[in-house]
Design a protein around this nucleic acid. Structure first.
Length: 123
DNA sequence: CTCTTGACGGATT
DNA sequence: GAATCCGCCAAGA
């Protein structure tokens, strides 16, 4: 088979995306990495390129182990990721230690990942 | 070819 | 701690 004439069919994943997915899969439970860290680790592009790969091919990897530098969860998938964090024992942190306040406008009651303890550098 | 948007990051206010 | 501005790289219209 010709190497390049066979493309068209089958999900074709660029080498960079494959790298991101591979690294994401190798992140141990209870740990997380930021998009910027992944990009730096792979020495390729920037945080936005990593995020794009996750958005397109992240459906096949534990995308919830890759979070933003702020530790904020993915918009639209917060509950989904939070369920995994709780299950794996990922250190979480809540901004308002005291009881629930009435309808906060900016942020919801959703906690964020404690980057100080959950950040993984590839070791 | 140009313009806009985006699973982002960091610094500044 | 939250809100705002700018920068980076790539894909889509």
């Amino acid at each position: 088979m010709t190497d390049e004439a066979n493309e068209g069919a089958g999900a074709e994943i660029p080498p960079f995306a494959e790298r991101v997915l591979d690294l994401t899969e190798r992140i141990p439970p209870g740990r997380v990495m930021t998009y910027g860290d992944v990009a730096e680790f792979l020495e390729h592009g920037g945080p936005r390129q990593v995020g794009r790969v996750m958005a397109l091919y992240g459906g096949a990897v534990p995308w919830w182990r890759v979070v933003r530098a702020d530790g904020a969860l993915l918009p639209g998938h917060e509950q989904r990721a939070l369920a995994h964090y709780r299950e794996e024992g990922t250190p979480l942190r809540h901004s308002r230690g005291r009881g629930p306040a009435r309808g906060s406008s900016a942020a919801e009651d959703l906690p964020r990942v404690d980057m100080a303890r959950a950040r993984w550098d590839g070791r």
